[in-house]
Design a protein around this nucleic acid. Structure first.
Lengths: 150, 150
DNA sequence: ATATTTACTTGCAAATTGCAAGTATTGCCG
DNA sequence: CGGCAATACTTGCAATTTGCAAGTAAATAT
């Protein structure tokens, strides 16, 4: 029963990473994996600042600043100065950016549905419940271990 | 019940990625995330060739060739020509490399145990079972969806 | 015996990264 | 109010990482 915990997570995480990579072209835009993550996160958060998204993704702020610039240049993201605090830029997806993000999301979900299609309803529910459990507990465990999570 | 499947996986995968990143210095060697993945995979496979590991990790072979060179240079990996087919180089961890890989692995598992420590035995078993299910089904689903997994 | 394939390596040139140092705006404290 | 620190973001490098093209060397096919 006490197997190597890391191994099963490592394999799963790698495969999920491949999936993310493969779905990058889904929007017809050939964006990079990093850009895909950024689109995803801007879509998910409610009018986030540059700082917020950079931190969420664990990216250096200067690197992130440039990534955003490139996404603005290709017309997928727009930067709006915060009306209250003008040091801050609010990020949002353009119509085109939203479309790309949605296409990627659909393709991801489609693949995942496909993975689940070989499972019973019970198994599927179990898996979803398990991931929720993991997420909840990983969040709680931020300061538990010697190495803090970023 | 029908929530966004991708989301929960995306969050989990990202967090697990952070964990991997944070454990890179565990061996006292300050290696990069990519190097950590390579050490892990060399350790896991049984005397793999350069080609094999590159493919497993989804890395371009030329990039991978250079990554291996750097790991050889810092003394964590050794390249041995295959006695039967001399085009092939067999990869293995040096004693030091094995130690680094083990340290990282221990730290990863330690953190994961910590995450599980807030769960009941039943919950833990459920999660482990769920990840196994996922891995099994993701493997089966290679050619299922329109976008093939790498 | 020659051609093709396979495994791996190098030459670039482009893209990505992060630290240091910058600007601009806001908040703080006397 | 005025000056000083803090915050949000941007640019200047310089180093690293990346991948395609083109190479070498060994094995396999014809």
């Amino acid at each position: 029963m006490e197997q190597n915990l890391r191994e099963i997570f490592q394999i799963f995480s790698r495969r999920f990473g491949f999936l993310n990579k493969n779905c990058c072209q889904a929007g017809g835009h050939e964006i990079s994996l990093v850009q895909s993550h950024i689109l995803y996160e801007i879509d998910r958060q409610h009018h986030p600042s540059i700082q917020q998204v950079a931190e969420t993704l664990g990216t250096d702020i200067t690197t992130f600043s440039r990534q955003v610039q490139s996404l603005v240049k290709i017309g997928l993201v727009s930067k709006t100065p915060d009306p209250i605090d003008r040091r801050i830029f609010i990020l949002s997806l353009t119509a085109e950016g939203k479309e790309v993000a949605d296409n990627i999301d659909n393709q991801m979900n489609q693949f995942l549905e496909c993975v689940f299609s070989n499972m019973s309803q019970d198994e599927k529910a179990t898996v979803i419940h398990a991931i929720h459990l993991l997420n909840k507990n990983m969040e709680k465990t931020n300061k538990c271990c010697t190495t803090p999570l970023g």
